[in-house]
Structure formats: structure tokens, C-alpha cells
Design a protein around this nucleic acid. Structure first.
Length: 279
DNA sequence: CGCATTTCCTGGAGGC
DNA sequence: TGCCTCCAGGAAATGC
């Protein structure tokens, strides 16, 4: 389940391996997986050079030398991998890039197809489904702006998962951050104290930075582009640990539904925030 | 506007 | 073993 740290890991790997690469050909196996400029991606990208690879929110973005942006949204089962060209195409491989000056090819596969590839050309027609609005990057977010965001009644978990408000946090890192901050996922956002808000933002940044250092989290699908799993699962304190002892207090981790998502928490370490308004 | 619910999709897990 | 149902998840669409 690629969230911000997984996308960051993929982007860094691709920037290291692919910056400067000359695209020879592009193969699109599923036309409805590609959005944006309606012209064929094969013709837009072939012959271009990869200028830079970076990340925004959970998206991996390849900048081409003519200003075209290729935006990869990974959904939950999306994978970008580098393969020797002689390896057989895996099922659900929707787009393949081949290069003049690289031995391997770049493949984008996504069995569940919650992801997609957006081709944004500099003066191109912006047809097709557009990308939704994206909030600020959490790693750059100042406390003041974060507290401004919290002025809503919604459960804090549903707010942290809202990409239009804050970018890149998914189910795993949301639960981990809330536990580290000692905040209950159902706490109304506006009921968090100043100290809870400060702890939560700090926890989000620490969890994301730590996960990036470990190259992300691997439960099932996710791998770095070179095929190695991420190492962050070992550090999980609540996610997928229902019934197991809380690493802080020893009481069992509880599972519940919040914001239509499976949610893991320690009710002892994460009391509901009850601050009265205006205090 | 704000928030909840439904939908998309496949593969893996669990029941029998 | 094999078949069936259920469920995970991000985010857009729909409903109230």
C-alpha cells in the first residue's frame, strides 16, 4: 500500500537510475489506465529524455525534457519496477517504457487498477479525469498551519486521510502517528489540545521520516523498484497488531472502524481528546 | 459546505 | 483440494 514513504523511495531510486535516460519506445497495454493528454502516450514520450524524477503526495512524477510530466498514481497495488527486457511481462502490466541507453525497462503494473498514469503536457489538452486537489506536504507543514487544519469537527483520523487537506498519509502511517502521539483516532479534530496537536504533527513527521529511511513498509504488494521489500513493518506499534500487547503499556491493541477504514489503536495510550472549545 | 456512503478492482484469506 | 464469500485499500462520485 504505497503511501508517501513508498512513493519517496520509488522516486529516489528512479532518479538515481533513470535520470538522463533516453526513452526509445512506450507500450500501453491498457489505454484506460492512461489519462490526461488524449494523444497516444507512445508518441508523446518516445524520443524524449527523462529530466528528473520526484514525488508529490503519494505520486511519483517523471519530468521529461520537453516539460511533460508523467504522474504515476499507485493506488494500493500499483508497482513501478525495473526489469531486464528478457523477463516475461507480469500479469496486469499496463505500461512499459524502454530506453536507448539503459539495459532495463520500466514497468508499471497495477492488478487492482486503483492507480493510473496521468500525462500532463505543457500546452496539452487537459482531457480525461483530472487529478484531485492535494494539500500541503506534511514534512514541510508548520504547526500553525496544522492547527488551522484542525478547526473541524471530523474525527482526526478522517482528516489526516483527506488528501485535499494534508498530502501523502494513508491508513498505516495515520494509525502509527496517532499512537505515537497518544491521540484517539475518533477524537474530533477541534478538540485536540495545543499539546496534542504539537505531538501529533511531530509524530507524523518522525514516522514518515523513519519509514523513508527504512524504504517504506511491505505487507503484501509493495517493493522498491529493484524488488527489495521495505523494512518498516518491524517498527509498527499498532498496525495489523490486533490483540497483541501495546509496545508502550502492554494492554491489547484494539481494532475498530473509523472513517470506513480498519483502525488499530491502544485505548489506554490513546484517550479521546475532550478539550472544550475556546480553551 | 461538511460529512457519510458507495463504487471501482483483484488476489489472498478463511470457511466449509 | 476446491469452491465460495469476504475483505483490503485510495480517492472519486454520489447521497443527505
Amino acid at each position: 500500500m504505497p503511501e508517501l514513504p513508498e512513493a519517496e523511495t520509488i522516486a529516489r531510486t528512479l532518479q538515481r537510475e533513470m535520470a538522463g535516460a533516453h526513452i526509445a519506445t512506450v507500450q500501453v497495454a491498457r489505454r484506460d489506465f492512461v489519462h490526461g493528454d488524449p494523444r497516444p502516450l507512445e508518441r508523446i514520450a518516445a524520443g524524449r529524455r527523462i529530466a528528473h524524477v520526484h514525488r508529490r503526495a503519494k505520486r511519483v512524477i517523471i519530468d521529461l525534457d520537453d516539460g511533460t510530466e508523467l504522474v504515476f498514481r499507485l493506488g494500493m497495488s500499483g508497482r513501478i519496477t525495473l526489469h531486464g527486457g528478457d523477463e516475461p511481462l507480469e500479469l496486469h502490466t499496463h505500461v512499459v517504457f524502454r530506453f536507448r541507453d539503459r539495459a532495463f525497462e520500466l514497468r508499471f503494473k497495477d492488478p487492482r487498477r486503483f492507480g493510473g498514469l496521468w500525462c500532463i503536457t505543457p500546452h496539452g489538452q487537459s482531457a480525461g479525469r483530472a487529478l484531485g486537489p492535494v494539500g500541503p506536504e506534511p514534512l514541510d507543514l508548520p504547526l500553525g498551519a496544522f492547527r488551522e487544519m484542525l478547526k473541524r469537527k471530523r474525527p482526526i483520523k478522517s482528516l489526516l486521510l483527506d488528501q485535499a487537506l494534508i498530502a501523502g498519509i494513508g491508513n498505516i502511517y495515520c494509525d502509527e502517528s496517532l499512537h505515537r502521539a497518544g491521540v484517539h483516532p475518533e477524537s474530533p479534530a477541534q478538540r485536540l489540545s495545543h499539546d496534542e496537536a504539537r505531538r501529533l504533527l511531530r509524530a507524523i513527521k518522525n514516522v514518515l521520516r523513519s519509514a523513508i529511511r527504512h524504504e517504506g513498509t511491505t505487507f503484501m504488494d509493495y517493493r522498491t523498484p529493484n524488488g527489495t521489500p521495505g523494512g518498516f513493518a518491524l517498527k509498527h506499534r499498532v498496525y495489523h497488531r490486533e490483540g497483541k500487547p501495546c509496545r508502550a503499556c502492554g494492554k491489547p491493541i484494539v481494532r475498530m472502524q473509523v472513517a470506513q477504514r480498519s483502525t488499530f489503536l491502544c485505548p489506554t495510550c490513546q484517550p479521546l481528546s475532550m478539550r472544550e472549545e475556546g480553551t
